[in-house]
Amino acid sequence: SEEELEEFAKEVLRRGITIIVNGIRITEVEIFVKVLREILEKR
């Protein structure tokens, strides 16, 4: 749901943790923004 997305976004921003994806360091915020864009483009 959109509320869950908002909560996830807030949690990500609070933690600001960097994770490893395919050997490249990407912040969770960047991943969230990318996923959010993909979701919005599909609408």
Rank of each mutant, 00 (worst) to 15 (best):
S1N: 10
S1H: 08
S1L: 14
S1F: 14
S1V: 11
S1T: 12
E2I: 15
E2N: 12
E2C: 10
E3F: 14
E4M: 13
E4A: 13
E4I: 13
L5E: 01
L5Y: 05
L5Q: 04
L5H: 01
L5T: 01
E6Y: 15
E6D: 04
E6S: 07
E7W: 12
E7A: 15
E7D: 08
E7C: 14
F8L: 09
F8S: 01
F8N: 02
F8Y: 10
F8C: 05
F8P: 02
A9K: 07
A9C: 09
A9D: 01
A9H: 03
K10G: 05
K10V: 07
K10C: 07
K10H: 06
E11M: 07
E11L: 06
E11K: 09
E11S: 10
E11Y: 04
V12A: 07
V12M: 14
V12F: 10
V12Q: 05
V12L: 15
L13K: 01
R14W: 12
R15N: 09
G16W: 15
G16R: 00
G16C: 12
G16Y: 15
I17F: 14
I17V: 15
I17D: 11
T18F: 11
T18D: 09
T18N: 08
T18Q: 14
T18K: 13
I19M: 01
I19D: 00
I19Q: 00
I20K: 07
I20A: 04
I20M: 11
I20G: 01
V21A: 04
V21T: 02
V21F: 14
V21L: 13
N22Q: 07
N22P: 03
N22C: 12
N22M: 06
G23Y: 10
G23C: 07
G23L: 10
G23P: 03
I24K: 07
I24Q: 10
I24E: 08
I24S: 03
I24N: 04
R25Q: 11
R25F: 06
R25G: 03
R25E: 11
R25K: 11
R25S: 08
I26L: 06
I26G: 03
I26S: 03
I26A: 01
T27A: 04
T27D: 07
T27K: 05
T27F: 07
T27H: 07
T27Y: 13
E28K: 10
E28I: 05
E28R: 08
E28C: 06
V29G: 01
V29M: 05
V29T: 03
V29Q: 01
V29E: 03
V29H: 04
E30C: 00
E30Y: 09
E30P: 04
E30L: 11
E30A: 15
I31N: 07
I31A: 14
I31Y: 08
I31M: 12
I31L: 12
I31G: 06
F32Y: 05
F32S: 01
F32M: 11
F32C: 00
F32W: 03
V33P: 00
V33Y: 04
V33E: 01
V33W: 07
K34S: 10
K34A: 12
L36T: 02
L36I: 08
L36G: 00
L36K: 00
R37K: 15
R37E: 02
E38I: 08
E38N: 06
E38L: 11
E38S: 08
E38K: 06
I39P: 00
I39R: 03
I39L: 14
L40F: 12
L40A: 04
E41T: 08
E41I: 08
E41K: 05
K42C: 08
K42T: 09
K42V: 07
K42S: 12
R43P: 08
R43S: 08
R43E: 05
R43N: 10
